[in-house]
Design a protein around this nucleic acid. Structure first.
Lengths: 130, 130
DNA sequence: CGGTATCCTCCGAGATACTG
DNA sequence: CAGTATCTCGGAGGATACCG
């Protein structure tokens, strides 16, 4: 069954590589921060604490579901801190954690790279599409 | 029709914000580089030119479709150069462009941040899950 | 060798409605 | 106010087969 074995070996290599990707810190972090909404929410928090509703207003196009989900992920990863004040109505504030703050400079660099290379990228796209 | 107008205004704000996101260079670049496979492929190209098949072997878990699609996007954005040699069988080499090279340091920083903070993230997750 | 073309599946995002 | 619960739908991505 040479065919079977070859296919099996290929599948196993893929499984191993998938496992490697699942373990790789860079890819795991990229999974988190490369999410469509994560950077927008973190950017919104960069200038200080904000309430749930404020974040929903700032990132106007985000749905309740995704805002909650994004904040939960960031909180779980220790990048954002959630402070709940028991009162009626409830008040919840979100802030970047110290670790979250250390990530911001990299996002800023990425932002600056993007802004300074956007023209070059756009003209490359125009060339390619022709 | 206050209700209608309020809903319409909300929808319009969302549409505007979506348009803003679609225009924002950072988000457009993030769309590109934050793709599941893009960083892996760029990392594979960081040490020099590679052929299509070599990339497929290095990133073992990637499908033909996604490898092609990833390379096309990178080529279109001017981050990767595609060199085709007409012979039988055909030979195609991929290299990072100068612009692609300028992006690598940022990816490297991201990699280093991820590796140095992975423990902290993992313990934050463990805490959160308890 | 370096891809296309096609089909198919699954799951993630959004809309909507409800709640402590 | 700050979420949860539920449904639905589109499209990303994988498998497979074929092609110049």
């Amino acid at each position: 069954m040479t065919t079977m074995n070859a296919a099996q070996r290929r599948d196993q290599r893929k499984a191993e590589y998938n496992a490697f990707i699942a373990q790789c810190p860079t890819n795991r972090m990229l999974d988190t921060i490369s999410d469509k909404w994560t950077c927008l929410v973190m950017a919104a928090l960069a200038d200080g604490p904000h309430r749930y509703g404020e974040l929903g207003d700032t990132v106007a196009a985000i749905s309740n579901k995704m805002l909650t989900q994004t904040l939960r992920t960031l909180e779980r990863d220790g990048l954002v801190h959630r402070q709940m004040t028991a009162q009626v109505p409830v008040r919840v504030d979100y802030t970047l954690t110290p670790m979250g703050l250390t990530l911001m400079p990299i996002l800023t660099q990425l932002k600056e790279w993007s802004e300074s290379h956007m023209d070059e990228v756009l003209s490359a796209r125009a060339d390619f599409d022709r």
